[in-house]
Structure formats: C-alpha cells, structure tokens
Design a protein around this nucleic acid. Sequence first.
DNA 1: CTCAACTTGTTCCATTTGGAACAATGTGGC
DNA 2: GCCACATTGTTCCAAATGGAACAAGTTGAG
Lengths: 161, 161
Amino acid sequence: MAKKPPQTNGIDVGAFLNSVGLQHAYRMSYVTSAVVAPGYDAVKRETGLIRGEYLLLLCLAQEPVLTAQDVARMTRRPRNSISRAVHRMLDEGYIDRAPDPSDGRQARLTITDKGRAMQARVEAILAVREDEVFAALNAKDHADLDRVLRKLAAHASGLAT
Amino acid sequence: MAKKPPQTNGIDVGAFLNSVGLQHAYRMSYVTSAVVAPGYDAVKRETGLIRGEYLLLLCLAQEPVLTAQDVARMTRRPRNSISRAVHRMLDEGYIDRAPDPSDGRQARLTITDKGRAMQARVEAILAVREDEVFAALNAKDHADLDRVLRKLAAHASGLAT
DNA sequence: CTCAACTTGTTCCATTTGGAACAATGTGGC
DNA sequence: GCCACATTGTTCCAAATGGAACAAGTTGAG
C-alpha cells in the first residue's frame, strides 16, 4: 500500500524543512513533534496518562528516589505540572511518597510495582512510534545521532531553564 | 561567573539522560525543549506572538503563497490553531489573505512587508538560544546532525499525523 | 446531473498548561 | 539566636491547546 506523497498544493514539506533559515532547531523540533506528539496521544488514549504523569514514571523507573523538584528539572517542566502528576500517580497507586526526614520541605518519591508495570507499558507504546520515525536511519546515522545528542543533552542540562 | 552544576540531590541530569531506555526520542525531546521552550518564551515576551503565530510567519517567509492547511501540515499543528493565528496575523497586518479563485474553500495567504520584518525579528530571537545550545558542537557534529536530521525530517513528513 | 464522500476553514468547549503568589521549611551571615 | 533570603511543594487563575462538530465548497462514480 503506497504512501500518499507529502505534497499539498505543490508544497513539499520535506523540501521546505531543508530550506529553513534556522540551523537545526526547526528540523529537530519538527522531528520531535513527529515522534513525541503521536506517542503522547497514543499513551493518553491507551492509558489515560498525560505527559507530566508518564514522564514522572519514566524518571522514577531510572532513579530509585527523586523529589518532585528533581523530576521538574530532569524534564524541564514547571513544578506545578509535576505536583499535579504526583497527586494523580499517588491516587492511582503508581508511586509512593514519604517525607524526607532530613528536609521537611521535600518528599521522597518512589515507584511501585504497579507503577513499574505501567511504565513498561508506556515505554512500549512510545517505542512503536519512535521505531517508525527512526527506521529511516542506518547504523552510522544512529551512531552519529546518538553521539551528537548525548553531547547536546549534556550541554543543555547546564543551561538556564 | 561559573555556572551552577546541573546537580540536584545527587541527580546528574546529563547522566540520567544517557541512561534512558528509549533510543533517541527522549534525548531529542529534551534538547528540543531546551531550545524551543526558552525561545518560545522569549518571542512571546518580546513580541507577543505565540507559537502558531510565529510559525505561520516563518512558513510564509519561506513560501510565497500558502493555505492555512498547508501551514498546518508543515508545522504538524491542528488546523484550528492555525486558523486562530491567521486571524490574529491579519489583524496585525502581518499577512494578507485572498480567496483562491480556483477553489472557494481555501484562501491564499501571503506575508506583508511588516510581517517579514516581524519574522526577521523572531528569527533573531530564536537564533540566540539556538546558538547557545548548539555551541557545544564542532564542525563534524554539525555536519552529522544536519545530515541525520534532514533524513529524519524527510522520512517523518511522509508519516501519518 | 445527482448525491455521497471529502476538504477547507471555522467555532465551540473541555482539558492542559504554566506563571504568580503562597505557606512551610531550611540556610547563612552576623 | 535571629532574621533576611532561598527552596519545596501547592493552589489559583488566565491562557493556550486540540478534539469534535459544523457550514460551505469541491470531487467523482454512476
């Protein structure tokens, strides 16, 4: 089944993207949209979780203990979004929260088994779309992209929010 | 003035990003956030334009004539967002609209001189943040990233919305 | 020609989003 | 010890967002 060509009124989106004045940002943003937005929609449709919520689970699946603030910084999302997500994930039993004995302001968040199961489900959903988009790359492309993105992510994490 | 290290409670965001299970998507999304979100905020603060609005201008700066639908596809944004943007940009005198004589449903959008001036201003604002983030890359990184992103963008433009 | 199916642009509405202010707690200079 | 200042998590609220339904227009099969 042939794919409909990405043309509209003679506008070729791919060609357009290759002529934008900004260096990489627009193209990167476009590709990100193509991966993240449909993945986000699929996760929401299939699990009911919204972005801040599954990001919280993904973070807690990587690090055993985090504060809400940690998650906010790791995901570059505002604190109040994470705060809401924490409450909903607590209600669902996907995470636990315990006051930090050494700092009364913050709470230590951990993922539950139920939460870990949901996180695995979410990652599987996200991986489908991701694989579709990155299927265009060969081994060298993958390696190069990986190298550059690691460098960029490390650098960007030091920049102001 | 030294930059505060990107650490919080022992969580190194850069290291975290390099351990995420998803292949490229999360890192790419993170870097995109680091470029696009602050750029978006800066544009909004300095010009009052929101995302759909300046994307519309950027598109029209590249292609002399577009329909609202073209812009929606090029930017992967819903049509109603573009519709709103068109009305506001018309009110501001940044674009013109003329009915398409060959198809009564659609309208031909073009950018005005005033719009082009604003678009240049927006691109300058966006470039500042972009340069900051991509400053971490050397010439080979740039070339590799460019090559891979072009490939990805071309491929993604053929995928479903 | 006719009618069903489709496309464009729009409005309506519920949800998501994030800035700002806030209380509670911790920190550091003196 | 005390007090100004910073930090965490929260609530409130206005704005942005995107799905759904819609009218107007176009297309194509028969």
